[in-house]
Design a protein around this nucleic acid. Sequence first.
DNA 1: ATTCGTGCAAATAGTTTGCAGCAGA
DNA 2: TCTGCTGCAAACTATTTGCACGAAT
Lengths: 147, 147
Amino acid sequence: MRTDLTQPAEDRLRGKNQRFTGKRAALVEALAAAGRPLTIPQILELKPALAQSSVYRNLQILERAGVVQRIVTTDEHARFELADELTGNHHHHVVCTVCGNVEDVPAMDGVEASLHAAIDQIDRATGFTTEQHRVDLLGRCRNCAKS
Amino acid sequence: MRTDLTQPAEDRLRGKNQRFTGKRAALVEALAAAGRPLTIPQILELKPALAQSSVYRNLQILERAGVVQRIVTTDEHARFELADELTGNHHHHVVCTVCGNVEDVPAMDGVEASLHAAIDQIDRATGFTTEQHRVDLLGRCRNCAKS
DNA sequence: ATTCGTGCAAATAGTTTGCAGCAGA
DNA sequence: TCTGCTGCAAACTATTTGCACGAAT
């Protein structure tokens, strides 16, 4: 489970004529260690050596290189995680509407299968070309359980 | 199909001790007519009589009253649509990653069924309480088809 | 009369960007 | 050496808010 993502990340950056610097490696490392989407404040807390503006800039570059994925939930900050395509780990999200935290949940076969069937049908009917999907569960996490 | 949503919207506002003013009715009307999530600039274009700050404020109030739902996709503006619960029309979204447009697609039975099964399992395993889910298809709309 | 809604303009907050210096190839 | 990365501070932009006035109950 502990595959090293450094090399594929570096390859993708080089493919876009970008350097794989220490700061960028630190971002990949932080996201890999977290195992869930992080906001920029969370990243800065984990890696205080990083400058905020560079984090924004590097995450944008990493996103364009296909290394990370930006996700938006409902609260103020965007969140970032390693791209499914990089980790080979397709998953969905569980979003707490109270504290804002986001956790990964593995994609479940039944859902994926019926979703792909539905996508085929929708694409055929509408002329849309689906490239990606996202499934989010919204509710309350254990800590924020209904009062 | 053309049920009047004015009355239920008004009831919900009154339930929260809010008034159902002309401006608020105009918002509900615009969203009902659109049949898809709109950004605030889009709303202002449709209803030029509305002041931007009041639109922001009223959509917030309508959201808290359960009349509208705010959705965030990837691009800069949030989008608003009538709440599923109000229209009785559970649906998902198709999001064009090029032009940003969002369209509704009816929820499909197969997907809903397998999703509910998965949600039960996840909630039981994690202690999370799912209250709502969203499914988005990301890709290119007919107009923005791959170059 | 009193409470609440509205519009304007100013404030806020997340994110982006210009620029000068530093580092990797 | 040359191109691109970094940090700082300033700019930008979606959204929120204070305030004075007008409308609904």
